[in-house]
Every structure is written in structure tokens, then in C-alpha cells.
């Protein structure tokens, strides 16, 4: 019944409307079957290697937790990545149309447009975006712009599955066109109960889970139930991996306001470097 679907086709601003269940369109999607996930993190390495992603930022990762009391305990895993939302807040809020929704369901970045304002990072409810640090292995690849999972469109369009799917040892990541009833994802979707992250936000994610666990899916729970080691490691991360937003607060360290001051100081220190980059860009533009 395309007509009734047509009516529910929302769009956020200047972009392709959502394609969920709309006949004649594609909606690439990933189902993550958590019964099959063994926490091997092959997906994490595959993705990083595919794109040469710098240390300290991730397009996909695997959250892990332990449940229960000895001896009745269990381990849970939950791979995370961009949800390629049908109604992506990130796209709606981007001031330069650098991020956009592709008609086949991908939410993508155009590095040459991105100004690095990070509005989209603030907007994304899933932390799926990151600012690429100033230095990376291959200096020809973009830096200081926002990046995210592309659902490996460069592979999909060549007829192969995304890198993390290809690498997934457990076979937990399944990828395909959800609008094609014969695709594996569509078949799975009709057979199994799927859950998505933060469904209440109405983003309509294209990544869904079989056997999702509340403990890992809930946002504040993830924070309150961290192991102490993980909390300290996060602090280590904030100390040594300087993001370019200068808003990180180390827990249990200096007072929050003192850190706010230090952050401002950090920001001021970057101005000369950035000014030099801008100057170089000008020189390049004018004389080369």
C-alpha cells in the first residue's frame, strides 16, 4: 500500500525523505544478532583499517558488560555504529548541508563542505560522530572535519558488504536492503524481534538488534554502571587525547571550574596553529 506509506514519509529539511518501507526505494540496513556476537572486536579493527581511522575516534565499537552475581553471571556485548537514521537529527541540524541523507538510506558526510562546527555531533543522540584529529597517518585524508560510519557505501555500491560485516567472525552483523522482501535482513526482521536504540526519539534507526540488553542500551545506566577501571581509562583518554572541543571534564580531578579554565587556555593555544593553517591555505589559494 504505497499510498498510506507515502503519507508517513517525513523529511527533515532539505534532504531525501525517509525510505522505510516505501515501495520502489532502498533502505540499506544492518541487523546485529547479539546471540551470535562473541565480542571479538574484529569489526572494530576491520572498520579502522578500512578507513585508516586515527587513534581515539571510532566509527564502530563493541560495548561490553558483565551481568549477575557469582556464579550466575553472563557477559553481554553490543556493537555500536551510526544508525543511518531514516530521520537523522544530524542532517537536519547541519548548517552547511555537509551531511546528507542518500536516497538509498545512507547518511553521509561531505568532507569538503564540513566546517567542523560539530553541530551534528551535538545533535546525534547516539554518539556516532567524531571530529577527525588534526594529525593522521595518511595526511592526504581529511582532518579536522566530522566523520562517521558510511555504511561502507564504497563497498556496497561495488556489490560487497560493509567491511565490518565481512569481518564479523560470529556472523552477527547482517546487512542488506530492508525494503527488498527477499533480502536476508528483511527475512530476519519478519522472523525475530528487533530492538533499536532510543526508539522514543523517532529517528527510526536502520541498525537494529536481536536480543538487545537493557543494561547496554540505556544511556545513563552505561554511565552509572561503569567499572572503576573504565572510568579511570576515560580520564586517561581525556587527559591525553585532546579533542578539539575543549569541553572534557576529568572526574575526581581538579574542580570543574578550574578545568573549564584550563580548557579555555587549551583553546587559546590552538589559535596560532589554526591561524597558520588558514594563512597557508590562503597562500596556496593565491599563489599555487
Amino acid at each position: 500500500m504505497p499510498d498510506s506509506h507515502e503519507k508517513t514519509r517525513r523529511s527533515y529539511g532539505l534532504q531525501t525523505a525517509g525510505t522505510k518501507g516505501v515501495a520502489g526505494t532502498k533502505r540499506y540496513a544492518m541487523i546485529i544478532d547479539l546471540r551470535k556476537c562473541i565480542g571479538c572486536r574484529s569489526c572494530m579493527v576491520a572498520c579502522k583499517a578500512e578507513f585508516g581511522i586515527p587513534l581515539g575516534v571510532w566509527r564502530t565499537w563493541v560495548k561490553e558488560g558483565d551481568k549477575g552475581r557469582y556464579p550466575n553471571t553472563k557477559r553481554i556485548f553490543m556493537p555500536r555504529l551510526c544508525n543511518h537514521c531514516d530521520y537523522p537529527v544530524c542532517v537536519r541540524n547541519c548548517p552547511t548541508q555537509a551531511t546528507f541523507k542518500h536516497k538509498d538510506g545512507f547518511v553521509l558526510q561531505r568532507y569538503n563542505r564540513c566546517i567542523g562546527c560539530r553541530t551534528c555531533m551535538v545533535a546525534c543522540p547516539y554518539n556516532a560522530r567524531h571530529l577527525i584529529p588534526a594529525k593522521r597517518t595518511d595526511g592526504n585524508l581529511p582532518t579536522m572535519v566530522v566523520d562517521k560510519c558510511t555504511f561502507c557505501i564504497h563497498r556496497v555500491k561495488k556489490g560487497i558488504v560493509p567491511s565490518c560485516v565481512q569481518a564479523c567472525v560470529g556472523g552477527a552483523r547482517i546487512f542488506g536492503d530492508m525494503n527488498d522482501p527477499n533480502s536476508e535482513v528483511a527475512k530476519l526482521a519478519s522472523k525475530e524481534t528487533l530492538t533499536v536504540l532510543k526508539p522514543e526519539l523517532g529517528t527510526s534507526p536502520s541498525v537494529s538488534y536481536i536480543g538487545g540488553d537493557w543494561e547496554l542500551m540505556d544511556e545513563p545506566h552505561s554511565y552509572t554502571n561503569r567499572s572503576t577501571g573504565l572510568k579511570e581509562e576515560f580520564n586517561d583518554f581525556k587527559r591525553n587525547h585532546k579533542g578539539d572541543a575543549f569541553g572534557d571534564i576529568i572526574e575526581g580531578g581538579d574542580s570543574t571550574m578550574k578545568q573549564v579554565g584550563q580548557n579555555m587556555n587549551g583553546f587559546l593555544h590552538t589559535i596560532p596553529h589554526k591561524a597558520k593553517n588558514v594563512f597557508d591555505a590562503f597562500v596556496n589559494f593565491l599563489f599555487k
Partner: peptide, 9 residues
């Protein structure tokens, strides 16, 4: 440069 600059742990 990635290791020099971004190694965080």
C-alpha cells in the same frame, strides 16, 4: 603522526 599525536592510553 597518528601514534605521535593521538596515542591516548
Amino acid at each position: 603522526p597518528d601514534i605521535d599525536d593521538n596515542l591516548w592510553w
